[in-house]
């Protein structure tokens, strides 16, 4: 597959209490906080994966956006599963890091939670996704100041060009306090949008 022939097959956005697939609104709940919103979205999307509720907010966000994009593919045993994951954000796992820090600050009341500690790395989110979709593929989680279309474009193109992956799920999953955003897109041989930096920026900035 030549990198210049690659396409963006589908894209998913979760932000501002909305879930969109290819700009089509799948779910909206304007009034709830993130915890309630993501739980309602999970139920609406018929995700059915009880471990979801044990995840931290970053993993919930990445997991749900990925599930919307990959579920139709990974449920089909005939479909190729060499789908690499290339995620990025600016806050890393800061929200969960703060929770963990809070639990270890008071030496008289020192009870760190193992269930929180295991999420003090952003790439744990990729592990959760790989387990659910049975992916044994390449995965990377990059930390940037801002959404970096240039880097994601080059990295995804390289993975496919060098035959490390058949398809690449790329994007931005950021979560800090009540500020959250997921934007994921699937780079593939199929699709109607050209896999170009300008197109990625256009999709990302059209909110």
């Amino acid at each position: 597959m030549k990198a210049q022939n690659l396409k963006i097959k589908d894209y998913c956005r979760i932000s501002n209490n909305k879930v969109l697939l290819n700009d089509k609104l799948l779910f909206e709940d304007p009034t709830s906080d993130f915890t309630t919103f993501i739980k309602l979205a999970y139920k609406k999307m018929d995700t059915n994966y009880p471990k979801f509720f044990k995840m931290d907010d970053l993993s919930k966000l990445g997991f749900l956006a990925t599930d919307i994009l990959l579920k139709p593919m990974t449920q089909d045993p005939e479909m190729p599963k060499n789908i690499a994951l290339v995620f990025s954000n600016s806050a890393s796992s800061l929200q969960t890091d703060r929770k963990h820090q809070k639990s270890i600050t008071d030496k008289e009341n020192y009870f760190p939670s193992p269930a929180i500690f295991v999420y003090t790395l952003p790439n744990i989110c990729l592990g959760e996704i790989s387990i659910k979709h049975r992916l044994h593929s390449e995965n990377s989680f990059f930390i940037f100041n801002h959404f970096n279309a240039d880097y994601l474009h080059a990295y995804a193109s390289s993975l496919i060009k060098t035959e490390k992956a058949d398809e690449v799920l790329c994007g931005w999953i950021n979560c800090d306090a009540e500020d959250y955003e997921a934007f994921l897109y699937l780079v593939s041989a199929e699709g109607s949008i050209a896999h170009k930096k300008e197109e990625i920026i256009k999709l990302y900035t059209t909110k």
């Binding site: 009880p50 044990k54 009870f111 760190p112 939670s113 193992p114 269930a115 295991v118």
Partner: peptide, 17 residues
């Protein structure tokens, strides 16, 4: 209940706390 190894560690912390 299908608890896992991380749950077991949480239960150990709960017993202590």
């Amino acid at each position: 209940l299908g608890l896992d190894s991380i749950d077991a560690l949480e239960l150990i912390v709960m017993l202590d706390k």
